[in-house]
Design a protein around this nucleic acid. Structure first.
Length: 654
RNA sequence: GCGCGGUUAGCUCAGCGGAAGAGCACUUCCUUGACAUGGAAGGGGUCAGAGGUUCGAUCCCUCUACCGCGCACCA
């Protein structure tokens, strides 16, 4: 009996165990190859059966398999035919059954190359972000097999190896070099006379013919990753020592998907360390994979790739890019949500409208404006908030936490700059001309400029466009936004401004909340009474009257020692703000609102008491945590007292 | 089977030892001169289940259930 170790995987293993010849009865087209197949014919005595078999030479394997069944049937050797599930690989594109086929191929001794790469990661010359991928990297690198770099595909870099008629291998950079090597070899061993060798070498036509007919180039191409592994330096002019190579090798970070660790990243590391004696990059940021709707990995072969152009057509490239960044939390894949893309399209629109508002109100960039020297509290405040947002965005980007960075700039633009700053400066911008207005216009333009810079990595198009548009007013610009320096804010922190504007924001929010809960129409302007206001609050209230009036729909602000009877009382930063609404408010609704507040305060106190009542907590928890809890309790107690007071007054009103 | 990873508000997802968060959706109100692709205010989670560690667990450990991905080729 003969088996085919050069065709079937199981036969291959059997052949190895028993040292059998490597027989394959198929040719590369899947046709029977029997006639001149020495391995197949060896030791097979002539017979009619052999002749019948040999008659199948050159026929397709599927047809021949049927014929063999017929022959077995004819000989009475077939017992039965039953269906069986047989798993065989199929070509992705052709659908054809792929037959195993033993051939000579080129291998790289990957184990040796892997050692320096493993060491580089262990020594932290290269760092994976997030770090969990290190384990994946090590498990692959430590179990690495010889790397077969021959590929039987129709594109790619052809392997630079030529074979002589005797199987002698000539590896050379060019065909010309291979010819020279081959001529040297075959004249040396006297296959070719020295004179003939000289003649061939000297005659281009004969040289070409020699290359074509005498030696044969390996038909295979290099594995994509073999070529790609050279990318970090071959694209920079290597092996020449170019300026680019010097500047960009090694580079700081490689950004890629996890599935590429096993292919490209590791090979770039191996090749880089081998040829350049240095790592190709220091950080390896493994980003999330965008999966299709069903959570499957996208693949060109599978054809389930979502075309980003469709999303871009609908929502814009900025919205898509921002969404991907905002969803790119470390270590988790992305199932793209069109709703989030839509939301971020709206965000881009919001920014555009804010810029339009600034332009309409003459907010042009002023080269003489220095946010550190701003006089207006509002402008100090937005400088303070801009610096804070800038720090958040910068820190998040440096930590490769792009979702945090995107969310930080989103919140700043929408919930700080648009919702509060632009609203608060409206009275200034529409008010009388003066230095306050001049400064505010400059500050608004400055903050917008900083926004453009911080948002640029996430929304490059709309920010670049706004950068261009805003250049039409105010100071000239001499470069694109993309070329501008990343903002660094120093000396802009301003706790006093933060406290003051924070008070205004809290006051307005509290009044708005009550208005809605009490069903007070927007057209009704409410009087506001600050009860027992501290001198600081009184000063603030006088200064911010116009702003509070506008934003909270308040008629006027007055002061009193105690809240008037029947007024709704709000606790804002520890002090009472009262809205006298006798006859306007629904007393029952107000009582319910206060009861709810009271319940919240009670729950807070109960939770803290449960903690503080536990001797183990007090004994073992860090001191600052215990202190914090005590402060929370005090704050809740104060709140509760004010609410109780308000409830009491309500009784008097009824 | 062998490895990973996930299970948090209706949906898509952050957070990962000290009072549950975002966007969208939902409810109510608002055509006030940047923006209705908008504004204001709300409702909604025993953080899959069970044990354990801890003064304290959504967060750490173990187990269970369910869901995904890789371990062919191609890229």
């Amino acid at each position: 009996m003969k088996i085919t170790p050069a065709h079937d995987f199981n036969d291959f293993e059997v052949g190895r165990r028993h040292n059998l010849p490597l027989i394959n009865v198929l040719d590369v087209a899947g046709h029977l190859d029997l006639k001149d197949n020495a391995a197949f014919l060896k030791d097979v005595p002539p017979s009619p059966e052999l002749d019948t078999t040999l008659a199948e030479d050159g026929f397709d394997r599927f047809a021949v398999r049927k014929k063999i069944v017929e022959r077995l049937e004819g000989l009475g050797l077939l017992e039965k035919i039953e269906p069986t599930t047989h798993v065989v690989p199929h070509g992705d594109r052709s659908g054809a059954v792929l037959e195993p086929f033993l051939t000579d191929q080129w291998y790289v001794e990957a184990k040796t190359l892997a050692q320096p790469a493993i060491a580089a990661v262990r020594e932290r010359n290269m760092v994976f972000v997030p770090p969990q991928w290190e384990a994946t990297f090590f498990s692959w690198m430590e179990n690495i097999q010889p790397w077969c770099m021959s590929r039987q595909i129709w594109w790619g870099h052809q392997i630079p190896a030529w074979y002589g008629p005797d199987g002698k291998i000539f590896v050379a950079e060019t065909e010309d070099d291979a010819v020279a090597d081959a001529l040297a070899h075959y004249t040396d061993n006297e296959e070719i006379t020295v004179e003939e060798g000289h003649d061939i070498a000297a005659d281009p036509a004969r040289r070409a013919r020699f290359a074509r007919e005498y030696i044969r180039r390996d038909e295979d191409v290099l594995d994509t990753w073999f070529s790609s592994a050279l990318w970090p330096f071959s694209t920079l002019g290597w092996p020449d020592e170019t300026a680019e190579l010097k500047r960009f090798y090694p580079t700081s970070a490689l950004v890629t998907g996890f599935d590429i660790i096993f292919f490209w990243v590791a090979r770039m590391m191996m090749m880089g360390l081998h040829f350049m004696k240095e790592v190709p990059f220091h950080d390896i940021y493994i980003h999330a994979l965008v999966r299709d709707a069903s959570g499957a990995k996208m693949s060109k072969s599978k054809g389930n790739v979502i075309d980003p152009l469709n999303l871009i057509g609908e929502y814009g490239a900025d919205a898509l890019r921002f969404t991907l960044a905002a969803m790119a939390a470390q270590g988790r894949d992305i199932k793209l949500s069109t709703q989030r893309v839509e939301g971020n399209r709206n965000f881009a629109t919001k920014l555009w409208n804010a810029a339009r508002f600034a332009e309409i109100n003459g907010c042009a960039r002023d080269p003489d404006f220095d946010p550190r020297r701003a006089k207006e509290t509002l402008n100090r405040w937005i400088a303070h908030e801009t610096a804070k947002a800038g720090r958040e965005v910068t820190a998040a980007i440096e930590a490769y936490k792009f979702n945090d960075a995107a969310n930080a700039i989103y919140r700043f633009v929408w919930n700080v700059y648009c919702d509060w700053y632009l609203e608060l400066i409206k009275p200034v911008l529409t008010g009388p001309d003066g230095i306050a207005k001049v400064e505010t216009r400059a500050a608004a333009a400055w903050a917008l400029d900083e926004i453009l810079k911080l948002l640029h990595p996430f929304m490059p198009f709309v920010t670049e466009e706004l950068w261009h548009v805003t250049a039409e007013h105010g100071a000239k610009r001499d470069h694109m936004l993309a070329l501008d320096a990343w903002p660094q804010h120093h000396g802009l922190d301003h706790a006093a401004a933060e406290a003051e504007i924070g008070w205004v924001v809290d006051l307005v929010s509290a009044i708005r909340s009550v208005r809605v809960e009490m069903n007070i129409p927007a057209s009704t302007l409410l009087p506001l009474v600050l009860a027992g206001a501290s001198p600081q609050t009184a000063i603030r209230a006088r200064h911010w009257t116009e702003f509070v009036q506008r934003l909270a729909r308040v008629a006027d602000i007055t002061f009193a020692d105690t809240a008037p009877q029947g007024a709704v009382q709000l606790v804002v930063r520890g002090e009472v703000a009262a809205l006298p609404l006798k006859g306007v408010i629904d007393l029952a609704a107000e009582r319910a609102r206060l009861a709810k507040e009271m319940a919240k305060a009670d729950a807070d106190i109960a939770r803290v008491d449960a903690k503080l009542g536990n001797p183990n907590f007090v004994a073992r928890a860090p001191e600052e945590v215990v202190e914090e809890e005590k402060e929370k309790r005090e704050e809740a107690e104060m709140r509760k007292a004010k609410i109780a007071e308000a409830l009491e007054r309500l009784k008097g009103a009824a």
